[in-house]
Amino acid sequence: MSDHNIRLDGPLPPAALDDPHLQPATGHPERMEALAAVAIVIGMIGFVGFIWAYWVDASTQWQAATLTVGMLGLGIGTISWGKYLMPQGPFVEERHDFHSTDDERSAFNAAITGRGGLEVKRRGLLLGLFAVGGGIMTLALLIPGVRSLGPKPAKSEDPHGSTDVSLFTTNWRQGSKLVTVGGRQVMVDDLDVGGVLTVFPQGYEGSSPDQVILIRLAQQAPNEHYTLEPPGNTEWTAAGYVAYSKLCTHLGCPVGLYQEKTQQLVCPCHQSIFNVNAGAIPQFGPAPRPLPQLPLAVDATGQMRANGTFDQAVGPGFWERP
């Protein structure tokens, strides 16, 4: 092997045509060449086919098929050329250590600690000022870079704060009319027992924090209450209706899956299961808290209304939540 160590510096040793290292890997190079040629020609046909498929606006399948044939043909041809026809060696390359000599190392270190370090030691004040200045600059640049991104979350529980900046509030108020996402007002007779409907406070149709799932559990008079097991609030039901926030307390997915027979709400995302008859208390899964219950009332015209707002923040947990 030592014969070849000169190769990068001096004249390069050539190899003869019949050197075994330069022979193709296959015993029948002419056959393999023909095969590679055929593959590349098929590939060419494929690409021409793709142009045709594009031109006549053929289906995605035709486009993909022609393109795939083209790529396969070229790929198989080129790989066969490289694998079977090109000199296979084996060839070897020397490996050298990465690290520098001890002299080089100490010179490098001295340039940093000696030359630079001496200057830094001598002007300690400037270095300190530079560090502080750089820190202040970073802060100054970061403030608009971060603070402009969005509003600060509202800290406390302001019942009339905007839902855009507060995780604590919703747009449900005493007397809010229940409407569908299309804005249709929900009347007391709209749902049969076992019926389910996604509702919003009027004026906020489609709003994420306000989504509520309305379920009719019994055929009752408007002033009657359906008895819920704790922690459900019986007083907050009306005419056999119960309403819960549709935001899962796990990760905020809409809890849209109502199993009528077993009286459960299931979150389709991570399969938290809530007991509808017991204030939507979680029975299984990762959700930690019941879905907040919305107080309901029926007015004199039979219109379904909210009889107050949620008694807690809706949706998943967060640090500021008490």
Binding site: L191, D192, V193, G194, G195, V196, Y258, E260, K261
Partner: peptide, 13 residues
């Protein structure tokens, strides 16, 4: 009719 576990969707809904 809301068979089995399926909720019932009345014409009001």
């Amino acid at each position: 009719s809301g068979p089995g576990n399926m909720p019932r969707f009345s014409p009001g809904n």
